[in-house]
Nucleic acid binder design. Structure first.
Lengths: 233, 233
DNA sequence: CCAAAAGTGTTCGAATTACACCCATGA
DNA sequence: TCATGGGTGTAATTCGAACACTTTTGG
């Protein structure tokens, strides 16, 4: 007989807060799905799933993300665990929430649509089921903190991006304007961006230079004790 | 029949990383217990317990802490959730770890001893069961981060303390020396300490003034947008 | 030639760091 | 009186914030 058999067992789920950034609309978005099971079937919710017997939490979250978007190897980090006895009216379910940062353009459209998923603007969210609103708010707060001290903004942008696009992303996430000169001075002084020989020409006549995030260089610096810090006004 | 009956259920535990600070020895300590159940009975471990049906995670952690120390209402915060399939050889157990900061002198001694608990120096930890070492390391790193931006150091000190004691605490946690004048200038400039009319006379002939943390004042400032910041060299 | 967005430097004040001597007291 | 630990100020530098004009180019 089992060792802990005097104790109760519960369902354990993961829920993914999937952030994406729309460059053209300058808008931070969340990937939501119409819930397919009871209770609360048809309501908006985060992408989630129960943890299987042979997988750990990170793997469960990665599986949920892969099934919905076709993406793997993207930024995905545990955020917080929710366990109120009443949080899911169907049963006692604990949920470990994960934050994902993905490049909107990389997503597998058919997969997304067959799952009934939609990008929703963070500035115009519908009410979500259970405590998913709370999960989102916590994830947003954490994102605002983390993006200051880790170069995770690049996870939300394409491989090549302009400084204007990068700054817009920071402005949207922090919900405040940033001084263009101070922002450029700071990010360029870190020596983590490579200027490409190519301009983005959609949004202006002059065109804006494309840059690339030098991830290898960041990893090297980080191991040498360098701390990313992009907290600028 | 239950809604989610196709899915597996698991045990859910909480484990408490209980920090205490020994003023005299200038030493950060951890409250460990000799595990009382199989597997790994008799080995050093964190204080933990299974989550009951009628309680949420915070309540479970508070219960574990209360049973071991007799303390309630102390600093206790969710840290991280561990769910590797192999982490507990006895069964599939998920564990939500909590960091607690307590005042060593407030602890209920009989309770502590009847539970087989001991204070262990962080600089000389025995190996712990399962993934408890990992939990401790994560909690320490988080403590080092948090104590810079939140006034949680006071949770580890008695109600009245000297500036020397406060600085020692910061030095021990950050494991580096801090300049006395800079430290005092910064903490005093925040206007969060009240100088008492009493000196600590055990450790020096001159005696050091006692101070008190003005928690009410901090709460007021915080609501007005003030950010605690005690990152000093 | 002009509208629209990209790109560029400098100045000022505040905050951080580095640093060394005097004070109070009990034994 | 002296050994021990507590307490104090200033100067130099760095860092953060504020701020406005020039460049490019397609239509």
């Amino acid at each position: 007989m089992a060792l802990y058999s005097n104790y109760s067992r519960y369902y354990i789920a993961v829920d993914c807060i999937i952030f994406g950034y729309d460059i053209l609309e300058k808008d931070l978005k969340l990937l939501l799905i119409k819930r397919k099971m009871q209770p609360a079937r048809g309501k908006w919710s985060l992408a989630g799933g129960f943890v299987k017997q042979n997988e750990n939490l990170d793997e469960a979250a990665a599986r949920v993300l892969l099934n919905l978007t076709g993406l793997s190897g993207v930024y995905l980090e545990q955020s917080w665990t929710y366990g109120d006895p009443e949080r899911d009216p169907g049963a006692r379910v604990f949920s470990v929430s994960y934050s994902a940062l993905i490049k909107i353009q990389d997503i597998n459209r058919e997969l997304k649509e067959s799952n009934g998923a939609h990008w929703q603007s963070m500035s115009n969210l519908p009410g979500l089921i259970f405590d998913h609103d709370e999960m989102v708010m916590k994830a947003l707060t954490d994102l605002q903190m983390h993006i200051k001290i880790k170069p995770i903004g690049f996870e939300l942008l394409p491989e090549k991006f302009t400084l204007v696009q990068l700054q817009n992303l920071y402005e949207v996430i922090h919900q405040r304007p940033i001084d263009k000169r101070n922002f450029r001075k700071k990010i360029l002084s870190m020596n983590l961006l490579e200027k490409l020989d190519e301009k983005e020409r959609e949004t202006s006549r002059k065109g804006a230079w494309y840059y690339r995030f030098k991830r290898e260089r960041y990893e090297k610096f980080r191991k040498m004790g360098f701390y990313f810090d992009l907290d600028v006004y």
